[in-house]
Structure formats: C-alpha cells, structure tokens
Design a protein around this nucleic acid. Structure first.
Lengths: 110, 110
DNA sequence: TATTTATATTGCAATATTACGATTAATTAG
DNA sequence: CTAATTAATCGTAATATTGCAATATAAATA
C-alpha cells in the first residue's frame, strides 16, 4: 500500500532505517562530504556547491537534521550547519556489528 | 520533478547513496540482522520472520541484492541468501572516514 | 508426467520522495 | 523604517516506493 509497516518493527530497526534513508541520496552524501571538508557552512554555500536550487538544498538539510545527522545553529542572518556526532554513532555501531560478524564468519553459503 | 539528478553527482556519491538507500527500510534492516544471526537463510524463513507477505519480502531481497549487500545462491528448489561483504566494505569506509573526522574535529559550530 | 514447494514477477493502489518556482519569515545593513 | 540578504515553507508536478493479490516460473518429489 505504499506505507511502511513501521509499527511491526523494533524501534532500533526503524531508527537505523531512518538514518540510512537520510544518507540514501547523492545530494545528502555530498552535503556530508562537504561538511567534513569545511567543518561548517551555511545553506548558501551548499547551493553554490550543489547542482540544485535553494529550496531543494534546504529540504535536504531539513531531512538530514530530522534524522539527527547534522545540527544547525543560528549565526546572524544565516544558519551554520555541521555534523551531529550522535546520529553517526548509531550507524557506526551497526556497521561495526556487521563488520565483526563478517570478520568471524565461518559458514558462507555464497 | 521527483527524479534524482544522479548525473550531477560523482559515481562514488551515487554508489554510497544506493547502498544507504537499500538499508533505509526497517524490513531490510531486519533481514540483515537475521542473516547475521543465522549466517544464511531462504526467502521462506524471512517470510515467517517478518510481518510481510512473500512477494514483499522477495522484493526487499531483490533490492538488497541489487545494491550489493546480500548474495543469493541456488540450493535445490530454494535460494540461500547471505551477506555480501563487498557492499558493506564501501559503507564501512565511508563511516570510518566520518568517524576519523569527528574524532579529530576541533572547530565545532553547533 | 503431475503435483508440490519455493520464489520471482506482474499489476495496481496508496503513499512518499524529489525538485523547483513563488512566497514568506527573519535578520542585517543602510 | 526600508531594502537587501538568507533560508524556510507552500504548492505542485513528476516519479519512486511500499505492499500485496494473483500469477508465473522453476526445481523437487511422487
């Protein structure tokens, strides 16, 4: 029906999915990569950096912020964005779990 | 216009986005978690495990496979699925990059 | 060969996402 | 206060995703 059955999955599963989904667009990957390069920047910088219009960039920023992957601070007329460590911690834990499993995996069917 | 401007982003950015997007659904997180628990399983096992119908599970498996996060091997009448290390390597590299950055970050605006 | 078992595919309805022009809101500069 | 700057929101079109019933495919078994 086009609507995710969120209520049937665990909170942790839904949380991870939200975080991964937020990273599931090249523009948002590009935003994260840019923030790594410059520590922090304002929306206008990203509009210059990306091949997208200002409302579109603003929307992507909103999604990253809602997911908990970036933070925004008012700085005069503009808003200063930077990475939010908390969100990435959760992804890191999951990837570490998978990595540990893969390193110790014996029984590989494929 | 509802269509991602893939061609304006780097191949690496698009690749990462595809991988993250594939993880961006709780059912697919649940599938990955189940595979970690049991090493390998067939579609029918997941149909019993998840609150979703067989065609829906099959579709989620297809997406994970297309993204390169799982592999499927014919095993008689059924297909044996397990994690694909290659796909997770790429995500791990990205998360490690971010993690290294966050650990050394001095200038935090937020 | 016919039947059962396991999974993929098709088709479709409901909903979500992507993108942007136009507009609004909020702050700064003059 | 007014104009300029910056970014969010609204409205909307195009497209993608989610989910499942029905069906098709493919292998194992009787």
């Amino acid at each position: 029906m086009g609507i995710t059955k969120t209520q049937h999955f665990t909170e942790e599963q839904n949380e991870l999915a939200v975080l991964a989904k937020a990273l599931g667009h090249p523009a948002r990957i590009a935003i994260i990569e840019h923030l790594i390069k410059v520590d922090s920047c304002i929306c206008g910088d990203l509009v210059n950096e990306l091949p997208l219009a200002q409302p579109t960039v603003s929307q992507h920023l909103k999604e990253l912020k809602n997911a908990g992957l970036i933070k925004g601070n008012f700085e005069g007329a503009s808003i200063c964005y930077c990475l939010n460590e908390e969100g990435f911690e959760k992804i890191k834990s999951f990837i570490t779990l998978i990595n540990t499993y893969l390193e110790n995996r014996k029984d590989q069917c494929c």
